[in-house]
């Protein structure tokens, strides 16, 4: 009867560790492999040679070269046109309808377009070149929206320039042109060459001149160095170059005390604040002379 389990292996014989001898050829090949020259040749030299040869042979054919270039372009295209990179619409924020329309006609992009094809820097430069735009930020928002965030310039003054009427902002930068003064009656008027270069000072003067309210016609820059306050009835207050606000306040104080502006005065010359000077209108001057003559007689 045979035992069902396998017979126990004898500790000797087949079970002993095999110790096969290498054949002469295997031995020689092994020795050759251990030789540094052959080793470097087999591990570096031959693979490099084969790869270089194969590549060189492949690229020697112009058709293959073209195929590789085309393939690269195609892969690039396929990555660029993935939905993740597509821009579907342009959202313009903070722009007036006119500017919005203007931007959209300037950049006639037919969406959807890949974000790789949009030159945001150039677009930013071009939008920033609009006078009305103070600051613009362009970015492609997730979801394929080209966001154009615009901060418009706020017009604070109407400037009667030598050839046109312009709106300028607090920094003196042009915002837009006006067809006439009447288009923006809410903004104060300044005139004269170089008026746009001293807007903060003009604003300070206008702020100080608020009590004049209805009488005030505007500010005139004289000789690009000082301001005149133009009042109704062709009257003027001539302000000095330095500290015009203080001079104006002095005039207003005089007005408050002695009702100066209600009198028949043509110009109030404050160019030298230490010595305010009045120019009377001709009838007033005649009247003054008359009064003086009476007194003298």
């Amino acid at each position: 009867m045979q035992p069902l389990s396998a017979p126990r292996r004898a500790p000797s014989g087949r079970n002993t560790r095999r110790d096969p001898a290498p054949s002469r050829v295997a031995y020689r090949i092994h020795r050759m492999w251990l030789t540094p020259l052959y080793r470097s040749l087999f591990r570096v030299g031959i693979p490099v040679f084969v790869i270089l040869t194969a590549t060189g042979w492949y690229f020697a054919e112009p058709a293959n070269r073209q195929a590789v270039v085309d393939k690269v372009a195609e892969v690039r295209r396929s990555v660029e046109t993935r939905p993740e990179f597509m821009v579907k619409l342009m959202a313009i924020e903070g722009a007036s309808p006119v500017l919005d329309r203007e931007i959209r006609t300037r950049f006639p992009i037919d969406f959807p377009v890949s974000s790789f094809d949009l030159d945001l820097d150039a677009m930013r430069a071009e939008i920033a070149a609009f006078d009305v735009v103070r600051n613009v930020e362009l970015r492609v928002r997730p979801g394929g929206v080209l966001e154009v965030a615009i901060t418009e310039r706020e017009p604070v003054l109407v400037w009667r320039a030598p050839t046109s009427i312009e709106l300028i902002d607090a920094t003196g930068h042009r915002v837009a042109s006006l067809t006439g003064r009447a288009a923006r009656p809410d903004l104060p008027l300044v005139a004269g060459t170089g008026a746009n270069e001293n807007v903060p000072e003009a604003l300070a003067i206008l702020d100080a001149a608020r009590p004049l309210a209805g009488d005030l016609r505007g500010l005139i820059r004289v000789g690009e160095r000082r301001w005149d306050v133009a009042l109704s009835g062709d009257r003027r207050i001539l302000l000095p170059e330095t500290s015009p606000v203080a001079a104006l306040e002095q005039v207003l104080a005089l007005d408050q005390a002695q009702d100066l502006l209600a009198r028949d005065v043509a110009d109030i010359d404050m160019r030298n604040p230490m010595r305010p000077t009045l120019r009377l209108t001709p009838p007033a001057m005649d009247e003054l002379r008359h009064i003086r003559s009476l007194y003298l007689e």
Binding site: D19, P22, Y27, L34
Partner: peptide, 10 residues
């Protein structure tokens, strides 16, 4: 046998 030993040591 010598080949075996030498190859192993190498």
């Amino acid at each position: 046998a010598i080949r075996t030993a030498v190859q192993g040591a190498q």
